[in-house]
Design a protein around this nucleic acid. Sequence first.
DNA 1: GCGATCAGCT
DNA 2: CACAGCTGATCGC
Length: 508
Amino acid sequence: MPIEMPKGLPFSVDTWTPCSNRKRHHFLTHAHKDHSQGISTHSSFPIYATRLTKSLTLNYYPQLNESLFVDIEIGQPIAINDPVETFTVTAFDANHCPGAVMFLFEGTFGNILHTGDCRLTPECLQRLPEKYLGKTSREPKCRLDYIFLDCTFATFSSKMPSKHVAIRQVVDCIWKHPDARVVYLTCDLLGQEDILENICKTFGSKIFINKENNPECFQSLSLTIPNILSQDPSSRFHLFDGFPRLSERVEAKIIEARANFQPDPLIIRPSAQWYVFEDVSSESEKQKNSRFKEAIRDSFGIWHVCYSMHSSRDELEWALQLLAPKRVVSTTPEFRAIELGYVRRHCSFDNLAPDDPVWKLLDIDLETPLVNEDIQEEVTINKKEMLTVSSLVKGTCLTLFGRARAGLGNSTLSYEDLVKPEISTQNVDEVGSDGEVPEGQHDGSKSNGLTKVIGKQATACSSTGMSNGVNENIRKLYRSMHIPVPKPLPSLVEILNNRKRAKRSFML
DNA sequence: GCGATCAGCT
DNA sequence: CACAGCTGATCGC
């Protein structure tokens, strides 16, 4: 999920809002629509993207002008001239979907890898500049200052098959059903082309796609895999819409075939979604693991294969061990990503040097003394604490593991909604019983000191009643940002803990 | 009437 | 719950 880049950076990645429009350079990692949302209204020159991503995006938004784009070639660094600071950017394959890249930014702001959406593999990582790659027992020569990391499946702890293995499972599933006259493939999403290509190659048959019913999908596939598409409905392989109401349509297809005394059609859905949310609590370890070894049939008759375009937790952990970045910023809501061991162990904001690039990144001026009159009495507030407070107050839309919470940017609801004392204490309670907070952050005691720390920012704001433990306004805020309502708000817990720590050290 | 944004759903 | 995406409602011009 795209997030706004912090104030201190001169570029945006995958965001198209009034806020991102003020940046001087824009980057588009890939052509999925949730990464180009708003591009037709809030875009300005230059937009850096691969040629394919540009073509696909122009397909989706015909009103966009091609001249807004600057092509970027994979692996070829380009120098970006910026009035404030010249920097270099290089694109690397993200193994997500056709045209998808990660961007490596190198400048006075530090060395930043933005993964966009990615399925990190050893091959992907080996293509990065060697100086950033560590060895088994040695740190890299040059550590990345930041990784903006796709943590979509960071809570997915099972070992996922590689894309390559998943494709083989799809092919094997077809081999095992020689009687099926028609094979329906729910591969209408950008990123599933390799599956179709492999089936075409293996079985020597092109894939039927109904051009009239699905013009946009047809156009996209015409750009990515033009040679394996067919307009002949007698082909054994049919592209099948994944939405809406897949299970209903599948049942109808099976009933229809049986009514005509034909063998059941084969329906295959290569996607990780079913695996991520399917309830397997009653299954044994062995059963759980075997789910990923071959295609598995559900009660509607759909065969599932775990084909993922995002990294699982072990893949993320492995990548972070190799790159050993100084900080990790999740581009996905934090509560899904906080479990990453590397982040827990290495990405704390303790012991920050005054020249650390994080200050510049967050647009915090260390030279200017604190003048907020309400905060002034909190003489023991340290800079680290201010980091947390500032990044929230200023609405830099930054998700930091264990610290700040995602995007407060252009919401109609204000920061005040989030810092009402009753909310803060409640979240602390939740965290205390949840046991999902990293070591040293547990604190179940109540405190309403938050308003003091935030000072004038925490003036009253109308709010509707509480429901289900979370203020309705906050629910609205998260929904409006397409972010699920999180259980704990670690930022608030952190502010409280920092404040307590500061108080303790004051008394000593 | 149109596009942009949002709510709800899979 | 939610991938990435769609549909339909609502808002503002």
